[in-house]
């Protein structure tokens, strides 16, 4: 098994997210390959280092705010009362949205791409613009020779003027 392209597999192995067959592959390879064994060690170590990084705790004022909001939310919908309009509305919204019912979250997520909304029947495709630019690049009228108007760039008059591709003095 080649080392190249193994990176992702090693990473998944370090996360214990490989199938049994993949795990066996990794273990067999690493037994013989010092470099990949070392890479795996680095992956494991960086995982551990990240996990043990000092995590800033939530500031007290944030916790207070959240506790109060939680208390309010719980008080607002006691179990005994029937569904309020707000609750029915929420229920309707959640029926439209996928599993976890984060109706607001999903709506917000949809808003992310609003500027680049893809409604083909109304939207102007970027590709049209890029083709037009490409066309202009090929015609490139300015700076060209009068003898070949609209050609794909001056050719004959550059003969002898060209900087060779491999002319590099590095």
């Amino acid at each position: 098994m080649e080392c190249k392209g193994l990176e992702e597999l090693l990473s998944a192995y370090a996360d214990r997210e490989t199938t049994p067959a993949e795990s066996a592959q990794v273990e067999a390879h690493v037994a013989d390959c010092r470099a990949c064994g070392l890479r795996l060690a680095v992956l494991a170590k960086s995982k551990q280092a990240l996990a043990s990084m000092a995590a800033p705790a939530a500031p007290r004022d944030l916790k207070e705010t959240l506790r109060r909001a939680a208390a309010r939310a719980e008080a607002a919908s006691p179990e005994s009362s029937g569904p309020s309009f707000g609750q029915r509305l929420s229920a309707w919204r959640s029926a439209l949205s996928p599993r976890y019912g984060f109706a607001f979250g999903l709506a917000a997520f949809l808003l992310v791409g609003l500027w680049f909304e893809r409604r083909p029947e109304e939207a102007v495709p970027l590709d049209v613009m890029l083709s037009a630019h490409r066309q202009y690049t090929l015609e490139r009228p300015l700076g060209g020779s009068a003898t070949r108007p609209g050609a794909s760039g001056p050719v004959s008059e550059d003969a002898g003027n060209d900087l060779e591709d491999d002319e590099t003095d590095e």
Binding site: P56, L66, A69, A73, Q87, Y100, G101, A103
Partner: peptide, 24 residues
């Protein structure tokens, strides 16, 4: 950034609180 993180967390929790009663 502490301030931004606070805002993000607050907003996320508030949003969840708004619709929590139809959470399973």
């Amino acid at each position: 950034n502490v301030e931004e993180a606070k805002e993000l967390v607050q907003e996320a929790f508030f949003r969840l609180f708004k619709s929590w009663d139809h959470f399973d």
